[in-house]
Design a protein around this nucleic acid. Sequence first.
DNA 1: TATTGTTATACTCTATAACTATA
DNA 2: TATAGTTATAGAGTATAACAATA
Lengths: 148, 148
Amino acid sequence: MTSYAEELILPRHNSLGWLIAVSGKQLAEDLDQRLKNIGLSIGVWPTLYALWEQEGLTQTELAERCMTAHYTTTRTLDTLEKMGLVERHPHPTSRRALQIYLTDQGKDLRHSALQQAIACNSDYLARLSHAEARTLIQLLNKAVGTEI
Amino acid sequence: MTSYAEELILPRHNSLGWLIAVSGKQLAEDLDQRLKNIGLSIGVWPTLYALWEQEGLTQTELAERCMTAHYTTTRTLDTLEKMGLVERHPHPTSRRALQIYLTDQGKDLRHSALQQAIACNSDYLARLSHAEARTLIQLLNKAVGTEI
DNA sequence: TATTGTTATACTCTATAACTATA
DNA sequence: TATAGTTATAGAGTATAACAATA
């Protein structure tokens, strides 16, 4: 067990999959807890996050950005609509598509919600220097293939 | 939005939480698919992985290493016992504890299962050099706090 | 015939808590 | 009284597929 490939799986604390799984669980649970303090949850986070970046997306576009199924997007938007945070508007050129917009209340949550996420990230990265943190994010970005 | 903390959350492809979530989903789905080719699934993977590292653990110890709830460990072991891959043995000094051992069939799966995990990791890391991959794992390790 | 979005249904996962038996 | 493990039950999340309306 000495090749490059095997080095990436054993022992446990060297295993990429294990480290990512542990990190994901930790970050998601932490963010969920923090979001609950402001009336949100991890379930609605990806959708709101996408809308804070760009409003007026159709549900299909939202589903792509959140990487969730279209029926999940439908239900998440039902929830967010009931909470008064988003609205479905008729699409200007297609009568079957809908454009999703934030309400004023949804816009108001942006800052405090992003603060919660920043706090999660900072806690997770507490053991790294700023330079190391930037390197980590850059490498994840490169691996995932979303870099520009 | 220019501070170090805010740089770690926006835009999306710079967000640590998003990158980790995407990576985790991708790695878990890929491994699940590959494991199904050899009759396993992602659900039993952490438990088998821990046992391939060390046999004879009690269920409580296994739950700790897999970071799952004790009732999840009970049910996963039920599944693995029905599959003929593990056995519950009486503990030598405690009549209420059980020690978990792999059957020969469970031991035989070790190599091919690890190969599947190695393939997942290699695919995920395909865009990185070996040095970059080692750096990524080292930084994740440091962040999670499991480094020796 | 394909696309956008909704809904019904079932299935898997997980969480809570009660339970047995041991220590 | 605390620990090791099991089980019942309910809830959340997810997957499949059928559906209506529109293109």
